[in-house]
Write a protein that binds this DNA or RNA. Structure first.
Length: 568
RNA sequence: CGGGAUGUGGCGCAGUUUGGUUAGCGCGCAGCGUUCGGGACGCUGAGGCCCCGGGUUCAAAUCCCGGCAUCCCGACCA
């Protein structure tokens, strides 16, 4: 492509509405332009990257045995009512009406459509397994779109859906997708950790997220440097604190702590620290009051509590719940509160010999509240949110917490949709069963943001070769001297020659100053920059710069095409 | 939805507090000339519903009321 005719305007200044580097650079490099909040036009350069990433995804999906389809974006809302997700998605879904005033959802995802499709075509165990995918635009009316394509309301996503006869089949489909995902992210040049996500209804290791490591990532995850343990913060756990013998302690003692329901205020008032205080958090479990005990410097992991009581419904005590139970001294509940139906404690409650806790009456806390003597939890579990330095549950080494961009998610769905939408098959014995499903997503447009976050510097983007819009950025510097014509000829010959050899070349043939050309080449970020100028040409060479590393060397003009084509 | 901020040529901004010539600067764009290996320079020029609607006033980018849009923090969500 000749830059003189490329639809491109690079920007010198950061756009006012961009906060993070990837968003700023994608706009400055002319890859995207905002049309509305969270909705973007993809310009030629950005679109080429999008296409390259999509192609990588397509190749790996095909390789893994999935079959590409294209499912509608406009989906009858009735389908969503059948699955019950109309309400679940709520205002997250864009809804449109046709001329007959029928409602349609603009696909936030496609479980309903694909399940209905498979249900209509397949009905025998002989048909299974099957795995269908598409790469298509998705619509989610996010409360807060952010960071350009990172959290957009319109975004390109690969979604795959597997249908199996049983759980063993599902596991095989899932494993194949998982392996394909690793390849996809490697080819995109991303540093990705697969982290265990909150378990679904099936239980077990049924959901993994793929996090591209990035400081600006919206999700925190826990991981171990020594082994391969990794989990998102909701699913993360840690090695339990062991039981220990507690020597005799001074008697329990009550102190006046008026208007101090908060941990920090109490700690300061009593001249102690938050980790020596105990929180007793009230949960409503199937209508009963349940106390969850954690040290004052830790948060309760609500998902862990839910997991501990599954399948009973669990929620944090609400204002209404407290209003219905005036006997509960909100903010001053102790671990031995008589009104609690059940007490569950995090194992870190074993760490201190004597706790400061609520006194079970307003405006008072007790000191020297001792495990075994003053209170005895019915149940122990790891219900506290993991903190950096906690021990890894599999190897015991310190855990770390980092942030990441969720670029993929694989999930074992089970029969939720196949039951709701009638996707059943007949087995050898003639009995009907719901198909067992998995779903697998990759955020294709989001990957672009993740790639730029990982591959950029102060001057611009440095695209990994496999996703770059062009492989070679050919900078022509004819100057005005006697050699100008020779430079133009040599550069054009190089451009034509490389294209003949199948190399994708961006040819800067513009009549602008050298400074602009170099700055744009660094901003746009093609992996290899070739400069053809009178200076080098006089010695029979062109110059090569590797964008990512800044390495420079020279290539003989005669050999340049061969050398570059081989790398391509 | 709660809190904060912003809205002025294509882009980045000043001007608004204290209403008052013809609304200004940088980049970009067009023309001419000089320059030509790391965002060159001079001259000339085009381009503005000052977010929208209403109000106050002799007079509104500027003050008041109402809306809309965009961004940030939070809540929410995969």
């Amino acid at each position: 492509m000749r830059m003189s005719s490329l639809f491109l305007r690079t920007l010198r200044d950061d756009p006012a509405d961009a906060e993070v580097d990837s968003h700023k650079l994608l706009v400055r490099a002319g890859c995207i332009r905002r049309v509305a909040s969270g909705i973007y036009s993809w310009l030629p350069l950005g679109n080429r990257v999008l296409r390259n990433v999509a192609q990588i995804v397509r190749e790996e999906m095909d390789q893994a045995g999935a079959q590409e389809t294209s499912l509608p974006i406009a989906q009858p809302l009735d389908l969503w009512k059948q699955s019950g997700r109309d309400e679940a998605y709520g205002s997250m879904m864009f809804r449109v009406q046709d001329r007959k005033e029928n409602w349609y959802a603009m696909a936030p995802t496609a479980e309903e459509v694909v399940t209905t499709l498979v249900a209509g075509e397949y009905s025998s165990y002989r048909d299974l397994p099957v795995n269908l995918y598409q790469i298509n635009w998705k619509y989610r009316d996010e409360l807060r779109p952010r960071f350009g394509p990172l959290r957009a309301r319109e975004f390109l996503m690969k979604d795959a859906y597997s249908f199996d006869a049983n759980l063993e089949g599902l596991q095989a489909s899932y494993d194949a997708m998982y392996a394909a995902y690793i390849k996809v992210f490697n080819r995109c040049g991303l540093t990705v950790r697969s982290v265990k996500a909150q378990s679904g209804e099936i239980g077990g290791d049924t959901s993994q997220e793929f996090m591209a490591v990035a400081a600006i990532g919206e999700d925190a995850f826990v991981w171990c440097e020594q082994c391969d343990y990794a989990a998102n913060t909701e699913a993360a756990t840690r090695r339990p604190t062991p039981e220990q013998a507690i020597p005799d302690q001074p008697p329990r003692e009550s102190t006046h702590t008026p208007d101090m329901p908060g941990i920090d205020a109490v700690a300061e008032h009593l001249g102690t620290t938050a980790d020596l205080l105990m929180k007793a958090i009230a949960f409503n479990v199937a209508g009963e009051l349940v106390l969850a005990l954690v040290p004052g410097d830790r948060e309760v992991n609500e998902y862990a509590v839910i997991g501990a009581f599954a399948p009973a419904p669990v929620r944090l005590y609400s204002d209404e719940d407290f209003a219905a139970r005036p006997d509960i001294p909100k903010g001053y509940i102790g671990p031995d509160f008589a009104g609690a139906a059940y007490v569950i404690a995090d194992s870190s409650i074993r760490a201190s010999h004597g706790w400061v806790t609520g006194a079970n009456r307003g405006d008072h806390h007790d000191r020297n509240v001792v495990l075994g003597r003053d209170f005895t939890p019915r149940h122990w579990a790891e219900i506290a949110v993991v903190a950096p330095g906690d021990e890894c549950p599999s190897c015991g080494n310190p855990l770390r917490i980092d942030r990441g961009i969720e670029v993929g998610h694989v999930f074992q769905l089970g029969d939720k949709y196949s039951v709701a939408l009638g996707a059943t098959y007949t087995d050898e014995a003639g009995d009907d069963h719901p198909m067992v499903m998995g779903c697998y997503g990759i955020g294709v447009s989001r990957i672009l943001s993740a790639i730029v976050e990982e591959h950029h510097d102060d001057h611009g983007i440095a695209w990994p070769a496999e996703v770059a819009p062009y492989q070679v950025h050919l900078v022509m510097l004819p100057g005005r001297g006697d050699g100008a014509l020779a430079v133009t000829d040599a550069a054009t010959a190089l451009y034509d020659g490389l294209r003949d050899r199948g190399v994708q070349v961006l040819f800067d043939d513009r009549d602008v100053s050298p400074g602009i050309k170099f700055a744009d080449a660094d901003l746009l970020g093609m992996p290899v920059q070739i400069t053809v100028g009178a200076k080098g040409l006089g010695r029979g060479v062109v110059e090569r710069k590797i964008r990512a590393t800044g390495e420079r060397d020279e290539l003989a003009v005669d050999a340049a095409i061969d050398t570059l084509a081989r790398l391509g």
